[in-house]
């Protein structure tokens, strides 16, 4: 037992340099910066505003740091040539400038913030309305209902009467509308390459809306701590061509497991999804999402058992 573990550790440590290597090969590492590799308009906007903000702020922060460092060097006690004015402590001009510069900058950034807030507003992304969407984009929305439990994801495709747990499949290039709620505590829906975070709250509905531009598999996370199984609340997001999506839906519709509210309540018992298990459900009862919300509002809780005595 112990030996086994130690073996695992040794192998693990042995593989570390390898990891560093792959990590450092320019391509490999840069691909790991998920936020710098947007594959959808929402994530792209997030990145664009990041660049803008950093550029504007750097234009002030860097000179400020440089000037401060220079002053420290120039006016150090041991420098005999520097001027010394022990009583000089006021200048209207300088005071005006030091208030004006940040004020103007905040004005500028405030404008960008206003623009950005509307662009990525999950209830009505200005961005998806105005920018380069395929003509069919908005008319042809795919609805996905998202329910989080302790500690799993349930993605319900209401029109298709199917559901997928702990994984998400969406078609490329089509607007996907997520309606989200939680059966237990607050979670946060996050697919770094595709869309930023939106909270998921019990008894309430939030929304996210996104389009994926490329085919691929993306990491999805819960970003809001929700208890013991939180670290394992990852879900792979598969973006597939439209045709393949249709085929997948059809196959899912014949999945053996069905899902109604009673079945959901079994599913929602506290579960740490340590092994990344995924499930497919067919014949998902209509209105399950609303039923979950209603249940929560009426006081249904999925109680966490008391941790074993003495566990700390």
């Amino acid at each position: 037992m112990i030996a086994n573990r130690m073996g695992r550790l040794v192998r693990y440590i042995g593989s570390l340099p390898l990891l560093l290597l792959t990590g450092c090969s320019a391509h490999g590492l840069s691909r790991q910066f998920l936020l710098f590799r947007p594959d959808g308009p929402l994530a792209g906007t997030d990145l664009r505003f990041t660049e803008l903000d950093v550029a504007v702020m750097m234009a002030i922060i860097l000179p400020t740091a440089a000037i401060t460092a220079f002053f420290l060097m120039r006016y150090r006690k041991t420098s005999s040539t520097a001027a010394y004015a022990p009583h000089w402590s006021h200048s209207n001009l300088i005071e005006l400038i030091v208030w004006a510069i940040p004020l103007l900058t905040v004005g500028l950034l405030g404008y960008y913030s206003y623009r950005g807030s509307y662009d990525v507003n999950p209830y009505d992304p200005g961005l998806l309305k105005t920018k380069g969407l395929p003509a069919a984009g908005r008319g042809h929305v795919l609805n996905v209902d998202v329910v989080t439990t302790d500690w799993q994801w349930l993605f319900i495709y209401p029109a298709q009467h199917i559901a997928l747990a702990n994984a998400l499949v969406i078609p490329k290039g089509r607007t996907v509308d997520f309606h989200m709620t939680s059966a237990t505590v607050v979670n946060d829906f996050f697919i770094p390459n595709l869309a930023g975070m939106i909270d998921i709250m019990p008894g309430m509905r939030t929304k996210q809306e996104l389009v994926a531009d490329k085919i691929g598999t993306y990491k999805g996370y819960s970003a809001n701590f929700s208890g013991g199984g939180f670290s394992w609340m990852g879900f792979a997001t598969k973006v597939v061509p439209a045709a393949q999506f249709k085929a997948w839906v059809r196959s899912a519709q014949s999945a053996p497991r069905h899902l109604d509210y009673a079945e959901f309540n079994t599913f929602a018992r506290p579960t740490k999804n340590v092994n990344g298990k995924t499930y497919v459900f067919s014949h998902v009862s209509a209105g399950l999402f609303d039923q979950v919300i209603k249940g929560v509002l009426q006081g249904r809780v999925y109680t966490t058992p008391l941790p074993p005595a003495g566990a700390a």
Binding site: D46, L109, S117, V120
Partner: peptide, 10 residues
Amino acid sequence: MPPINYSVHN
């Protein structure tokens, strides 16, 4: 800035 915050919050 909300659009940035959405990607790095939490």
